[in-house]
Design a protein around this nucleic acid. Sequence first.
DNA 1: CAAGTTACTTTATGCCGTAAGGAGTTGCAA
DNA 2: TTGCAACTCCTTACGGCATAAAGTAACTTG
Lengths: 266, 266
Amino acid sequence: MVVYAGQGDAARSMALLWRAAGSGEVRTGPGPKPGLTVDLIVDAAIAVADEDGMPGLSMRAVGERLGRTAMALYTYVPSKSELIDLMHDHALAELPGDYDLARGWRAAVRAWAQDQWEFYLRHPWVLQVSQARPVLGPHEYDMLDNLLRILFETGLESKILRRLVGTLVGFVRGAVQVVAESRQAPDETGVTDDEWWYARSALLKEVSPDFAERFPNVVKLDSDRAFEVMDETVPYLEREARETFASGMTVILDGIEATIERSIPG
Amino acid sequence: MVVYAGQGDAARSMALLWRAAGSGEVRTGPGPKPGLTVDLIVDAAIAVADEDGMPGLSMRAVGERLGRTAMALYTYVPSKSELIDLMHDHALAELPGDYDLARGWRAAVRAWAQDQWEFYLRHPWVLQVSQARPVLGPHEYDMLDNLLRILFETGLESKILRRLVGTLVGFVRGAVQVVAESRQAPDETGVTDDEWWYARSALLKEVSPDFAERFPNVVKLDSDRAFEVMDETVPYLEREARETFASGMTVILDGIEATIERSIPG
DNA sequence: CAAGTTACTTTATGCCGTAAGGAGTTGCAA
DNA sequence: TTGCAACTCCTTACGGCATAAAGTAACTTG
């Protein structure tokens, strides 16, 4: 299920997102000294999500990691939904921003995509945060600004660039999702990829004896694979996805080049 | 959160997926006549998911729609997870398969992508079913076989085709996800897109006075938009996503063409 | 030192998937 | 015809979830 951003009080949410990290958290009034900070909670929540995935991210789990109950967090954060916004933007801060344009936009876009790929594998739960309602945090804008700086080098007009951003982000997310999910799956289901594929493919023959006649093109594709050299150090699915990503990037970059040539003829 | 397929008994799961629909459901032994069928339950579950999205899909809700309790469903279906597998494959049966190759693979891929787009918008919850562990149902293979039939027309070798399938599926899913989520968001959060954007963009100025200096490329992109003609009959975000999809497809098709020319020089 | 403010806890509500066990219905063998 | 086994469907219960409401204790200020 997709998690939606910022359902709560928009003002409070934006204030939390854009607060200068670490500052403005000094308190003076009466009452007991706060034992936690928003940053502490966000860090703990990210640690929980990195380890146990989005399904493991409960207010109880985050509280427990900090030696508190779930309810204690509500002093600092309006709701779980807002906490996820903060986690998302905080994680995005990891992404580098200094892409070298000296070797052209093609190399820079490749580097950007590679960094995205690695980022999503470090924090797979980010893929579960909906893109329809962007968090609008500072680091999300950083990422967008960095990509745009590269893309303006193509000389294409803004209207086209805006779509290109969507295409690139969508493609990277789609490609990495397969790997992220296949890594998460064993933990969350208790079945390894190997066990799963073995059980399924054996059953497939039993349950569908006319497979070859019914799906001739699938069979044609599969039969060619038998002759490929198998490197089993990296699981098949993951290697396949990695290659899909690499060649998909080439396809897209070639497509962008074609767009440029079309828009600036000669 | 992503839902994983087939955690339960693989044999039972595959048997349910590949059972000839409507047949083999006649019972003879002792015991009361079954009041439901697997098909009835799957249809009801799809109806619930179409209306209320994945978060609204509970065993209680599906049972209620059929005038039963949640537990009654467990007579027919091993678990919610298996039910989702069945829903997924059953929904995929809607997709057409007779793509005309007379006008070339380019037009056929475009038609395929368009059908996928519409399918996902009819059943947005399908986007929440993990791709890492395919359901391996008959209609999933139908879809794959149909796409492969088109792609074999390119004359590219199997290894490349397999990656192309991943690229295309990933791209379509990524692109449509934005629209699907933006349509679901108002129902699930109680806030319309307009309200949401208005509140956020107003706050953005307040909370980040140095926006223009900090994100020059974002501002450059946005300023060009002011001169575009606004057609407000279709919400901005959705129209933008639609255009991103269309131009992304062109980019990918051009990229495939470049791959073909490179592999068959001259 | 009392009052007010705040951090944090306990308790409770209403969701969820599903395990366990019981009630009622039916077909078949004795 | 009777009794049993098989079967559908129900009620109840458990442990999980987010979070509302209310209570407790720590602290500053008057």
